[in-house]
Amino acid sequence: MSAEVHGDYFWTFDLAATDHVVRRRALARHQALVAAAREGLRGWNAPEAIALYRRRTIHGPVNTFLDSAPHDGTEALWAPFAVLYLRWEADYPTEWGVPESRMHSPWATKDVLLRRFERGGLPEGTRPDIAELVLSALRRPYRCKDWMYARLVPRLDPSFLDRVAALTTADEPLVRLRAQFVLEAAESPERRVTRVSWQRWLSGSS
């Protein structure tokens, strides 16, 4: 997918719009495209149907980002859509995860994106949004793959830890524990954050 079609996906930002009418319109468009791709699976060959899904929905720019090489111009062009996908899940998880919005596991895409940001770094301009996503994951009830946000903290400015530290006095005990885990991980970068280490910390057996 070339940079020339970048503008074709601006409408996808409305999937995470705060305006209910705007968001519902974008969601209807997205789900209609998903439905068309599903219908294609039944009526014509699967590769073309899957290509339609990946080309015309939010998965088009997300996959282009994942296919790009870290630190090149293409990555920076498509990174906002990768962040958008994660923000859509953070702010409107039901609309994001409902079967009508997808053709495969959205958690797998979330996993791949978080791994890419961890290993490839945070493209220019994405750090403020990633910081907010990390804080959101620490504050809310746990969702699949949320533990992976802790791996992105070293990619953020060191001053971000002050915002994490502020959560150690939160009313919710699990929020305090998650924040403490992130701070502990930041102090011991040689210890890789894993799902097991995250779960052990929260269970008090670290």
Results as ranks from 00 to 15, higher is better:
M1T: 04
M1H: 02
A3K: 10
E4I: 10
V5E: 14
G7Q: 10
F10W: 09
F10N: 11
F13T: 05
F13M: 08
D14T: 04
D14I: 00
H20R: 15
V21R: 15
V22F: 03
V22C: 09
R24F: 07
R24M: 15
R29F: 07
L33R: 12
A35Y: 02
A36W: 03
A37M: 12
A37P: 05
E39A: 15
E39M: 14
L41Y: 06
A46W: 10
P47G: 09
A49H: 04
A51Q: 09
L52S: 14
Y53R: 03
R55W: 06
R55M: 09
R55S: 13
R56Q: 13
T57F: 13
I58A: 14
I58V: 14
G60R: 04
P61G: 06
V62P: 01
T64Y: 01
F65C: 01
F65V: 05
L66A: 10
L66M: 15
D67S: 14
S68P: 01
A69I: 00
P70R: 03
D72F: 03
D72L: 02
G73P: 02
T74K: 04
L77Q: 10
L77K: 04
P80Q: 03
A82T: 12
A82Y: 08
V83Q: 07
V83M: 11
Y85D: 04
L86S: 11
L86N: 13
R87I: 06
R87C: 13
A90R: 11
D91L: 14
Y92M: 02
V98C: 15
P99V: 06
P99F: 03
E100G: 11
E100W: 08
S101E: 10
R102S: 12
M103I: 08
S105H: 14
W107G: 13
W107L: 06
W107F: 13
A108H: 14
K110V: 09
K110S: 08
R115Y: 09
F117L: 15
G121W: 01
G121P: 08
E124V: 09
G125A: 10
G125T: 07
G125S: 05
E132K: 03
E132T: 09
L133E: 11
L133N: 07
L133D: 03
V134I: 14
V134K: 08
L135F: 04
R140D: 12
R140T: 12
R143T: 08
W147F: 11
M148C: 00
A150C: 05
R151I: 00
R151G: 01
V153Q: 10
P154K: 04
P158R: 09
L161K: 09
R163D: 15
R163H: 11
V164Y: 02
A165I: 00
A165M: 03
A166H: 02
T168F: 00
A170N: 07
P173T: 04
A179K: 01
L183H: 03
A185H: 01
A186L: 02
P189H: 08
R191P: 00
R191Q: 11
R191Y: 05
V193T: 13
V193F: 05
T194W: 09
R195W: 06
R195G: 10
R195N: 14
V196E: 15
W198N: 00
Q199T: 13
Q199M: 13
Q199C: 07
L202F: 00
L202S: 01
L202H: 00
S203I: 02
G204E: 06
S205P: 00
S205E: 15
